[in-house]
Design a binder for these strands. Structure first.
Length: 118
RNA sequence: GGAGGUGGACGGAGGAUCGCCGGUGGGCAGCAACCGCUCACGGGAGGAAAGUCCGGGCUCCGCAGGGCAGGGAGGUUGCUAACGGCGACCCGGGGUGACCCGAGGGAAAGCGCCACAGAAACGACACCGCCGAUGGCCGGUGAUCCGGCCGGCCCGAGAGGACCGGCCGGGGAGGCACAGGUAAGGGUGAAAUCGUGGGGUAAGAGCCCACGCACGACAGCCGGGUGACCGGCGGUGGGGCAAGCCCCUCCUGGAGCAAGCUCGAAUAGGGACGUCGAUUCGGGUGGCCCGCCCGAGGCCUUCGGGCCCGACGUCCGGGUGAGAGUGCUCGAGCGGCGCAGCAAUGCGUCGCCUAGAGGAAUGAUCCUCACCGGCCCGAGGGAAACCGAGGGUCGGGACAGAACCCGGCUUACAGUCCACCUCCGGCA
RNA sequence: CGGGGUGUAGCUCAGUGGCCAGAGCCUGAUCUUUGGGGGAUCAGCGUCGUGGGUUCGAAUCCCACCACCCCGA
């Protein structure tokens, strides 16, 4: 196992740990399992590399203006880099934000996502 | 002190822990490296970064001649790389005023529209009305007019009234409105060829005169201004709408950083050019006529070039795969000072370097201090109402995120600060 | 980045610069019916997305803004 995968304590998010191509998003959306909460939906599917957990974000203009959308994305990333140890390994996750997501605080966001991962 | 106007500035500050983006310099591993991991240091959104409404830089494509479309601008004059921006000024409108607002060329080039009302909405023609000087018809062989009687007919329930014809009497010179003249008046309307007075006339009219008002045009003259335009004299008396079509003057090639440039394997097919071969080759063919393609990326026209078959060589772009790098931040840059200019702005000089991401960077938890608001305590002032230094506590902090870069415009915005000016009130 | 469209009654839509801005569905009342349904009559319902401007007069023309939708790369 390469050592960049063994590292779990760091909260850093590298490029390879994010979903970047529309192809990946389409694959996850089509084949993944879906669990929805009040302000977020998580779609999860088996990833390309075993042991690599990746995150993709989908925040549409429905959520708010650019400032609010960026804030939601940061908070979701913050949750992910802190708690990804609790997610089963080797999954690609797509987190979709829904309309009220911008009004939640960081701890509320983390709490809801933690519940959805179960 | 109150109410306002204009211009400008700011858009919380400091710190702790875990993290994000890129930069510089080390360390680890390794043959080595600009990759990977790791450590340190110092950077990291805005006044609007927004909307994408204009303008430019930059990049690629296009660019033989002529014409026509299409799009845009619209007081003048400056500034500018350019602009639909900005400054100054002119004109019009609003405000007591500081000041604000204005797509602000042309309606005698033409077309179109102007509801309802009104005689009429541009034709100053017609209609009602007025006149009937002039011409026409009737009239001392007695008209129009007045009175009476008779007959007919109409309206009205009736009383009564209107009209037509005949006769008698009175009276004594005009009558009719056919041609024609006129634009004074005509309840209207947003708007009707200026208002009042006098003269004048058959009746009238800026037809003439006096005073006044208004705006428009001109090829009028004089003076001022670079000019828009302003002042004076003289002349004239005209509907409005061009944010309806249009006309005039001026400007204007198209696309956009997903522009574009560089690098990258193989196969088959496509295109262009050159050489050679057979052969004179778009079609009908003797002249001549017709067609298609290219120059040509708005359209038309003129002009020019080309059009068949095979072989070889060179070059080119498109798709798939599978993307990577670059463009990418030093620039019409920012700040200070000086000079020119009313100003926008320009010139000179000194200093500074200030984000470069790419499914896209600032989040989480907390402390201190300022700021604003509510409540409580409250030195002190005051006759009271009340004002109130300071302290405690609770709450609040907007609009909003670079995506190639600049100059503007427009829109959003908690809370402040500064300068100048105007009006009103008080005191001296 | 570039281009286009829509906004009018509670809903779906008409609407030539000028007459009280209309139609259908809807809602209410009355009549008809034993009652319901259906039918008939009458009524209700509008900042014409917002703010300016042009015009005597604007849903309509012009400008700016707001919201929503669509297309291309």
């Amino acid at each position: 196992m390469p050592d960049h995968l063994s590292r779990t304590g760091s909260e850093r998010l590298r490029r390879r740990e994010r979903l970047r191509s529309s192809k990946d998003f389409r694959r996850v959306n089509r084949t993944g399992r879906r669990s929805s909460g009040r302000h977020f939906v998580i779609v999860s599917a088996k990833g390309r590399e075993p042991g690599l957990t990746r995150l993709g974000l989908a925040v549409s203009r429905r959520v708010g203006n650019a400032v609010q959308r960026n804030r939601v994305k940061r908070r979701v990333r913050s949750w992910f880099r802190r708690e990804r140890g609790n997610v089963p390994e080797g999954l690609d996750l797509v987190v979709i934000a829904r309309r009220g997501a911008a009004d939640r605080s960081g701890s509320e966001v983390a709490a809801e996502l933690r519940g959805l991962v179960e």
